[in-house]
Write a protein that binds this DNA or RNA. Structure first.
Lengths: 339, 339
DNA sequence: CTGAAAGCGCTTACAG
DNA sequence: CTGAAAGCGCTTACAG
């Protein structure tokens, strides 16, 4: 059933039916009701392409997967995608996931030219990220998940990575830890840089020296977490506490601790960042893991909402949010030995 | 730059330019070259909505995320989505990820009515899956990742879960294991049922009794793997080997084994299914995990290709693939103690 | 081998 | 409050 058939059935013009369905005010209440009822009865939905062509809006949010080969795909992305799709659906929009085997730039160019999306979600931004400038140059509205260097205001949702890691560091120092390692992501990425800043700031606030050799970067997976922690634990001045950038890295870190015959918590403290990925829950570990927590899924939902606002014309400067991160205390962070 | 402008620039009609760009044979070689060069130079891409409206094809593949609340999102889905997007891109198609907060059925109905996609990818099918019938009833072409009961031929790509788990079981029996547990997904899902069948078949082939209490179902995450393994290990006749449905479940299983003061491999063997999720690699574990392996990412790419063929009119009966699964022998599977 | 024209199914000034 | 008509940017019989 299309608009023509529906309007013929109702004995109205396509114009009126269309206006009634789109909530225009200059349609009589009676007509509106009749139209809405008929639409429901015949299960009418406007043809997406026709609507897009007529309005110039794609009704879709775009996400370009940095694929190309065997790049590590962050498993938390599945939850992020689910959140984005959820949030987009609330606005009647779809989520278009685009692969860019030819490189991300070409992917964005294609989406822009084809007018396939109204806005782009940019995930995992780097401190200096060429994509932001490119997207603005292509005229693609963008919401960033995270933050990046930019000369103009842009819409973003970020979590307070710096505050979270600073507080975690200070808590560990309060427990008497003096050598606290940071198993971090690649600091080219803003989230990792912010966590580094938080760690440095926490140490400085308590007058502790910063030992750069206790900072391991590029370690988000289990294996890298294991390797990094293992190497540090072999040192004579091994750290007594670890801050880990992901639950997976933390799992590797805990494995390394146990390998050394030490106990997580009692001997060596561990704090991990948790995105809320259900397959690896900190409270189910032994001991339960102390975490900095922020739901990546909820962030996805909210980002889609920000995108909808952006498309509606809201000033990007008014679409900037930094979410606080919970520090959830469990058993893996404990007072340092001998204290 | 749109088609009108491009053709005016070339001094040709829109018809000819369109035909040249779409590879029709009745365009002179010379014209084609001119058109293609100009298109490249002006960075022309057809407007997606207009093309969709004119051809009646959405140029997009749909995936409905079973969201709604806090359902467990399989982290391997991120790789699957990446693969699908990759494969779709090879065909110039997009991937539309749709959320269905109102239930999956309504999600499919909406996609069908709006003609927003040409085909649907159905993931994680159940043995009896109402969605398959619904999609066929809605006239939505479908490619299933997995298999399901169906009275009519349908396109699918599945991996040989049964064969993989049968071989793994037989290998363990060959090592002298007699009590082999299966930590499985929910057997409502076909993949889990097939693995159960493989396990049962492997035991039967070697004349071993099947002990249903050694079958734990619904355990794909780390926590559930831990709980299931822990419970079995507490029994006086504890299993000496485990088959795990996911790397995460296997991680939990290994944790339970170590909790009992036992060694993975030397004391208790573990075999896990690995989707190739980079964040948790079996070869990096200690000991390295023996796995049944099949790349979910590659499956995603291929499914998009199957969908493209289906849309082009290929008979679904000719679009059915079962991929063999590798059994990769590493250190976590060893001869039973005392053998 | 090329082009004029109709059509895909909507939305939206504009007129009444 | 309602409708006739133009237009969004393509594709595709059809005619030449």
């Amino acid at each position: 059933m299309n608009l023509k058939e529906l309007s013929e059935h109702l004995g109205l013009s396509k114009t009126t039916v269309s206006r009634a369905l789109n909530g225009f005010s200059d349609v009589s209440e009676d007509t509106r009701r009749r139209v809405e009822e008929a639409a429901r009865r015949f299960d009418y939905t406007p043809n997406a392409s026709a609507k897009q062509l007529a309005t110039g809006r794609a009704g879709a949010l775009g996400l370009v997967f940095p694929t190309g080969g065997s790049l590590l795909v962050d498993p938390a992305l599945a939850d992020f995608v689910a959140g984005l799709a959820d949030g987009a659906a609330r606005d009647g929009a779809d989520l278009v996931v685009s692969s860019a085997p030819e490189g991300e730039e070409l992917g964005y160019r294609r989406l822009a030219r084809a007018r396939a999306v109204d806005a782009i979600v940019l995930a995992q931004p780097k401190v200096e990220d060429l994509r932001v400038r490119l997207l603005s140059h292509l005229g693609l509205m963008t919401v960033v998940y995270g933050r990046t260097a930019s000369s103009i205001p842009y819409a973003y949702l970020d979590i307070d990575n710096e505050g979270a890691f600073r507080r975690a560091t200070e808590m560990l120092i309060g427990f008497g830890h003096r050598r606290i390692a940071l198993i971090n992501g690649d600091p080219d990425f803003t989230f990792a840089e912010h966590r580094l800043t938080g760690w440095v700031g926490g140490l400085a606030a308590r007058g502790l020296p910063q030992d750069e050799t206790l900072h391991i970067s590029g370690a988000l997976g289990e294996e890298a977490g294991y390797r990094g922690a293992r190497r540090l634990l072999e040192r004579p001045d091994a750290p007594t506490a670890f801050l880990c950038a992901s639950m997976f890295a933390a799992a590797g870190c805990c494995r390394a601790i146990r390998d050394r015959g030490l106990a997580v918590g009692a001997d060596v403290s561990v704090v991990a960042h948790d995105d809320g990925v259900a397959v690896l829950r900190p409270e189910a570990q032994m001991p339960a893991l102390t975490t900095t927590f922020s739901s990546i899924r909820a962030a996805g939902v909210r980002i889609a909402e920000l995108a909808a606002a952006l498309i509606r014309g809201t000033d990007p400067a008014n679409l900037q949010e930094v979410w606080p991160v919970d520090l959830i205390f469990r058993d893996s962070a404990q007072p340092a030995r001998g204290r």
